[in-house]
């Protein structure tokens, strides 16, 4: 079966094939559209990743604090709330339910809502990883911080977190790739990202196979790029001789 890839050069309103495949002067080809859709996917995913890492780091850390039971509970409550509700349901809650309760939320653009929903959902998973990273450290590390007279924030800043975060880079890599793929649910609340493009353009051109293939390739490229970037970060932050510094696991 010969696939006609020229349809990406078609103008989206008139259906004419445009030379050079890029529309000029207000014309938009399917190629223009898929690139802008890719932009939306990356925008949503990367912004949500920032939210997820910040909130996840904060909540994960709170959950390991000694002598602050209420902060631990807050962190646990946050984590359990956001990881026990399906992502698509959370997106709809943010989009339809929250604005019904707080009318001021109605004016918030839907892209912000999606970024928050996706970010908080992922933050629950990041929080769990950060917690396990901190708890994976030998207890002696915390005592060492206390012994040199550090306050709790100082112990975390200078002793625990630098090591714990290095340990959790591999699972964080997975989360960062997941967030690219999970961003596809954003189409449900009208973000013009890749999945929406595939559905709509597939219908318009009667060539859903080509559209989905193109979208698949772009998702794969995006996720793999994130994977490579995280790999570089992992290598750059290695501490020689430390267990999580890659290599064959030398032990403590």
């Amino acid at each position: 079966m010969a696939w006609d890839w020229q349809l990406f050069c078609k103008e989206t309103a008139t259906g004419e094939i445009i030379a050079g495949c890029f529309g000029k002067g207000g014309d938009q080809t399917y190629l223009n559209w898929i690139l802008s859709a890719w932009g939306w996917t990356l925008t949503v995913a990367l912004a949500a990743l920032v939210v997820a890492l910040l909130m996840g780091l904060l909540m994960g850390t709170l959950r390991t604090l000694p002598n602050s039971p209420w902060l631990v509970r807050l962190g646990t409550a946050w984590t359990e709330l956001f990881r026990n509700i399906p992502l698509l349901v959370q997106i709809f809650l943010w989009y339809f339910v929250v604005p019904a309760i707080f009318p001021a939320m109605k004016d918030v653009p839907s892209v912000i809502l999606v970024i928050l929903a996706l970010g908080f959902f992922t933050s629950a998973r990041v929080s769990e990883q950060v917690r396990s990273g901190i708890q994976a450290l030998p207890r002696g590390q915390r005592y060492a911080g206390m012994a040199v007279g550090f306050t709790t924030p100082q112990t975390y800043r200078y002793v625990l977190l630098p090591m714990a975060l290095r340990i959790v880079i591999p699972p964080l890599t997975s989360e960062s790739m997941n967030i690219i793929k999970n961003s596809s649910v954003a189409f449900a609340v009208s973000i013009a990202e890749l999945t929406m493009f595939a559905r709509q353009a597939g219908e318009e051109t009667s060539a859903p196979v080509q559209m989905y293939l193109a979208v698949t390739v772009l998702y794969a490229i995006s996720a793999f790029t994130v994977n490579r970037i995280m790999r570089v970060i992992e290598q750059k932050t290695q501490v020689p001789g430390f267990v999580a510094s890659g290599g064959m696991g030398a032990g403590h």
Binding site: F96, K106, S110, F187, A188, S190, Q200
Partner: peptide, 19 residues
């Protein structure tokens, strides 16, 4: 300003909720 529902029920909900 186009908003897209993922199915007809969603699109109608957008109208119903004022989105």
């Amino acid at each position: 300003k186009e908003v897209f529902g993922k199915d007809h029920a969603d699109s109608f909900l957008m109208l119903e909720t004022g989105r």
